[in-house]
């Protein structure tokens, strides 16, 4: 069961990196970064998964087999950061389009 999840994580990272490296459209690159980020979040959340576990809230809950809340907390933090990163990257892409009239990364004027 967990094997499938980890396989999905690796596949998502692979697809994301492929999009970042080989795609020319800036929006597709942003999608690639988001995919890698989803993979990282899925990985973190799946680390905290426990079969039949309950949420770690002490009032009124049976005291055995609780899930450790740390991975969920980490994932939440990382999702929030991810939203900021995606928004910022999309706004850069917008500015790029405004001044160059295209979203093609190969049409850039900076030749690193």
């Amino acid at each position: 069961m967990m094997f499938i999840v980890y396989l999905t994580v690796v596949a998502l990272i692979g697809i994301g990196l492929y999009a970042i490296i080989f795609k020319r459209n800036l929006i597709k690159i942003v999608i690639g970064v988001s995919l890698v980020e989803c993979a990282a979040n899925l990985f973190l959340v799946s680390l905290g998964y426990k079969e039949g576990g309950v949420a770690p809230i002490f009032t009124m809950a049976p005291h055995e087999n609780m899930v450790l809340p740390t991975p969920q907390a980490l994932t939440l933090t990382s999702i929030v950061i991810g939203v900021a990163v995606t928004a910022l990257m999309l706004s850069f892409a917008m500015n790029y389009y405004k001044s160059y009239g295209t979203l093609d990364a190969t049409k850039g004027r900076l030749k690193g």
């Binding site: 890698v36 790029y96 004027r109």
Partner: peptide, 19 residues
């Protein structure tokens, strides 16, 4: 436009590094 281009590059690199 160039500043956005440079910032986009840096953002891709640093978000991949962070991930």
């Amino acid at each position: 436009g160039e500043t956005s281009e440079a910032a986009f590059k840096y953002m891709v690199v640093s978000s991949i590094a962070a991930l």
